[in-house]
Amino acid sequence: MNRSEAEELLPWFVAGTLDEQEMQAVKAFIDSGEIDTAELAELAFLNESVAVAGAEEPAYNPQLLQRAMSQLDGVTQAPPSDFLDRLSNPDSSSEPDAESAPKGMFASMLERLQWSLTPPLARVAIAAQFALVLGLVVALTLGGQKGGEREEEAGFEVVSGAVAGDFTAAFAATAAEPEIRALLIENGVSIVAGPSALGMYTLDAADDVDEAAVLAALQASAITTFVQPVPDP
């Protein structure tokens, strides 16, 4: 703070309304004699004269309170602000209110579509159209995937849909496709499902092979990391 700034703050120094830091800074200028004491005296007198209600000022009428009290019932009050609400219910701040709580995906979609503003008849029509489209999608999807139907995929003969197998197996990540194919053909098994998210395949053994021998051969293979018979249903 420089002298000019200290002089600007003198009125509030005299009135005693500066914060502690400003008060000390201004006082330092006064103590050092850099601020004119006549100015300080003038402000002190101004403070003294204005702060006290003079004899010429009218008396305060205490009846004003009764007058106001009698009017309260006829006045509609504004609802408490969030600030005052938090003050009255400090715990409520930790609970998310209905407005600010995260909405579910479906609720958000309805809001985005302004569903609540849509007339009732239009809602029925939209719902019927949606059901029709959904039905067509399901029919087309299931129609192309009949249980047990075989498809060629990435060189393997796989079966989509609900199928039962004889073994569950996993192969080393470093194993090449020809190696796996050779192992499977050699032991009379084929992949009927997979790989799953964990890299597991369901294998089906031909009817004329010894399943115990196949299991032993697969377990013995260096490229097989896991193999287990599928339990009978």
Binding site: L64, A68, V75, Q77, P80, S81, F83
Partner: peptide, 22 residues
């Protein structure tokens, strides 16, 4: 007029206390 203003101020406080934001 000062008394009227005082009354008006206090009624304004009664009416809008809920709007006080701190």
């Amino acid at each position: 007029r000062a008394e009227e203003v005082t009354n008006d101020v206090m009624m304004e406080i009664w009416k809008n206390a809920g709007k006080f934001e701190g």
